[in-house]
Structures are given as structure tokens and as C-alpha cells.
Design a protein around this nucleic acid. Structure first.
Lengths: 135, 135
DNA sequence: AATTAACCTATATACCCGATAGGGTATTAA
DNA sequence: TTAATACCCTATCGGGTATATAGGTTAATT
């Protein structure tokens, strides 16, 4: 299941990308338009800024703006910073790998193999989908 | 993320299906071999029985056994009974649909469209994968 | 009748997510 | 220089959910 955090983050990115010019957008403006708690959105945008998708400007007339071209912002990267692993189990995650406690041999685990298949098919989508494609 | 419950359930099904004959397998036998808490596994197998994948036999020599041919047990059904929705968001779920609170128009929601794509690619795998394929 | 093993209900425990509080700091406009 | 604006950061809370356990009940076998 997609966390609310990720959903909000995606909506915020889309909202920012949809604007004609890349002028700063205030948090409150996004929060209002997308029905998101202001404070919670604040922390999400912070994550996106630290991940390098957004930058911000303080003071009057400040806000958040895209740091890269929407065509360069790939879903796979956004998902990983907001949601974490793409994979359904840590033992098949490329970026967040973790060994199963209960599993002795990964290569002989049927669940493992099945989840690799699912991971790859999902990756295929996220790898080829940019923010531009969503807007 | 796949819940531990689903993972255990899948492992149990695979364990049962791997046997030559379809004689009853005791919970403790599965629990021991797969490193799963006996009591927790008990409740999972109960779910699988109620879902129609397994049947059980009480008393000495009792246990759980497959009710259908492994080729007839599709992953999509197993996943839905153990994990619930296949989709990443309720608003694109076929069997567990729920409207978004924050979303006014589904058809114009970019997240919605993206998640439909992911759902379909995952469904494609689970629809065509049987327990037999895993074993 | 005794034993075995599934069945059922209830409860404990731990963890995580979404949300909020409350202040700090940088920038801008006047 | 001052006030207003808006981002920045840490801490914490409340509620829900997932995992796990406990203890007794029922049914089948020997």
C-alpha cells in the first residue's frame, strides 16, 4: 500500500510542475489546493528538497520550486525517497536490501523468486515514467 | 510491503504442495521447518482454509492438506485472501475499491492513472502464476 | 477413555503512520 | 532597522494495525 506521505508528495510535485513558470510556490498554497495538512506537507517537502528534487526560497514571495526539468525527475527516484523500497520484500530490494531472518537459502526460495518478478515489472514502469509524463 | 502473514502463508502453501502425496501435514511440522511461530501459523492456515485453498483433518494423523490441484491455485487469489488488495491505492483496487477522501475527480488524477498501470502489471503476474509454478 | 491436533476467542505487545506543537532562522519589503 | 513572511527542525502524541501468545474447546483417531 502506498503511504499517504508518498501520495501527498506526488500530488505536491505534480502541482508544482503544472505551473507555467518555475516560480516558488508556497506550502499553504499547495496544502489548500490538494487538501493536505499544512504541517505534514511541510515535512514531506523537506524530504523532497533533501532528495534533490526541489529547492526553496525563504522570506516573502518564497516557497518551493523544481530544481530539475520534470522530464529528468523519474518516478523510481521519487518513490524511493518517499516510500522507500520498490520491492515487496526487503530480500529482493536493490536499494534497501535486507536478509530474511527465517530464510536459509535465498536462491531456493519460491517467494523470493516471485517477488523479484513483481519488483522488475514495477521498476519497469517507474524507471520510464517522469514527472513530465504525469503532468 | 508484503506482510509477514502473507509470507508465512505462501511458505506454508508451498511446503504443503511440495509433498509427494496430499496427506495431512501438521501445523507443528510446517512451523518447525519454516521457522514460523506455531500459534501464529495456526491463524494463517485458518484463513487459508476459510478461503478454500486448504482443508483440515482433526485428531491423530490430522493436519492440513490442499483442497485443489496446485495448478488451480492462482497467486492472485492467495494474495487477495492473505494480503488484501493488489493495488497500491484503494481507489484503483478492483476488489477492495474505496474512494479517495482528498480527490475530487479520479479520472483527472495523475497518481490514480500511474497506480492503475502498476496494478495491471502486478496483476498480470499474479493472474498467471499458480502454486504449481512456485513449487 | 485417552490422546492427538485442529479450532476458537481473547488479549498482550510492539511498532509505525499521520498529524500537531512550538519554536528557530533566513529572507524580503517597507 | 524593523516587521512580516515562510521555510526549517525537533519532539511528541494518538490511534490503528500487525505480530504473537494464552488458554481452553471440539472433533477424530486409537
Amino acid at each position: 500500500m502506498l503511504s499517504v506521505k508518498t501520495k501527498y508528495g506526488l500530488k505536491a510535485l505534480i502541482f508544482i510542475a503544472k505551473r507555467e513558470s518555475n516560480t516558488p510556490v508556497q506550502i499553504s498554497s499547495i496544502a489548500k489546493s490538494e487538501n493536505i495538512s499544512h504541517k505534514y506537507l511541510e515535512s514531506i517537502l523537506l524530504t523532497l528538497r533533501k532528495a534533490g528534487f526541489l529547492s526553496s526560497k525563504k522570506g516573502k514571495g518564497g516557497g518551493y520550486y523544481l530544481l530539475k526539468d520534470p522530464k529528468q525527475i523519474m518516478m523510481v527516484d521519487v518513490m524511493r525517497s518517499l516510500e522507500g523500497p520498490i520491492a515487496m520484500v526487503p530480500c529482493v530490494s536493490l536499494n534497501f536490501y535486507e536478509k530474511c531472518k527465517d530464510c536459509i537459502d535465498e536462491t531456493s526460495c519460491s517467494v523470493h523468486r516471485l517477488m523479484i518478478e513483481v519488483r522488475d515489472s514495477t521498476l519497469k514502469i517507474f524507471n520510464n515514467k517522469s514527472l513530465y509524463d504525469l503532468v
